[in-house]
């Protein structure tokens, strides 16, 4: 609050001004972070399967591995007593768009050593297939299903490769790809019609059903060939 009588504009010179700012991001010298013990060990063990190594956001170590050897490397990281990355914190993928490869990202954390490591495998769009790690970590089961659902990455050897978030018969593609439009590929009317045409009881997976017949709770008229649906709009 300005004192009465003082020039209100006298105060505005305090503090940094927008024009004082230099170009954003950090020109500050990157603090030389401590070398990560697992990175050296990985290079020793796997040689050229370790494609690259970088340090992100100050102190986060990222290792790019050969996608063909991901299970080998990850199981070593999990089992080796010096590494012991027993907690797969996250498994996800990143699409940068523009035809660049999709990265599958494993966030590892070692509970005994209190150490984090990020492992990435780059998959070219033409060959979106990588070995599943659901055998190493049970939690990878759903996480991989989600990546497959959202990015279309095929996880070879996955025990249950179904879509997880989208309906099983979702026809519009893989939503988190950069080429997927935010509102989907179909019109809203088509999306609504397709959604309501589904019978919620129908999407049992064959393994769930065994040799049972699907139970029909209510018969919802399913008119495939009825293009002009006359619906009572209530007015």
């Amino acid at each position: 609050m300005n004192k009465a009588g003082s020039n209100p504009f006298a105060m505005v010179d305090e503090g940094p001004k927008p024009s004082d700012a230099t170009v954003f991001p950090e020109d500050a010298p990157e603090a030389a972070s401590a070398p990560h013990p697992s990175v050296e060990a990985l290079r020793d063990h796997f040689g050229d399967a370790i494609v690259a190594h970088e340090v992100c956001a100050g102190d986060q170590h990222v290792v790019y591995v050969d996608p063909a050897r991901n299970v080998e490397i990850l199981s070593w990281l999990k089992a080796d007593p010096g590494q012991h990355y027993d907690h797969l914190a996250d498994l996800t993928a990143v699409d940068y768009g523009g035809g660049r490869p999709i990265q599958v990202v494993y966030q590892l954390w070692s509970i005994p050593h209190k150490r984090a490591l990020r492992v990435k495998a780059e998959l070219p769009l033409s060959e979106l297939e990588i070995e599943s790690v659901a055998g190493l970590w049970r939690c990878a089961d759903w996480l991989e299903r989600e990546v497959a659902d959202m990015f279309g990455v095929v996880f070879a050897g996955h025990p249950d490769p179904r879509r997880i978030l989208m309906p099983e018969n979702y026809a519009e593609g893989y939503p988190l790809r950069k080429d997927f439009p935010l509102r989907g590929r179909f019109s809203r009317a088509e999306q609504t019609r397709r959604a309501l045409r589904q019978n919620p009881e129908d999407d049992y997976f064959p393994a769930e059903m065994g040799d049972r017949e699907p139970q029909l709770v209510a018969s919802v008229a399913d008119d495939e060939d009825d293009e002009s649906e006359e619906v009572n709009h209530g007015d």
Partner: peptide
């Protein structure tokens, strides 16, 4: 409260209306 029993399981709004709304 009229409601067409045949409308069960169908959208309430027609295509054009859905398009208008969204």
């Amino acid at each position: 409260r009229a409601e067409d029993p045949d409308a069960a399981g169908k959208p309430r709004a027609g295509d054009a209306q859905v398009r208008d709304l969204t």
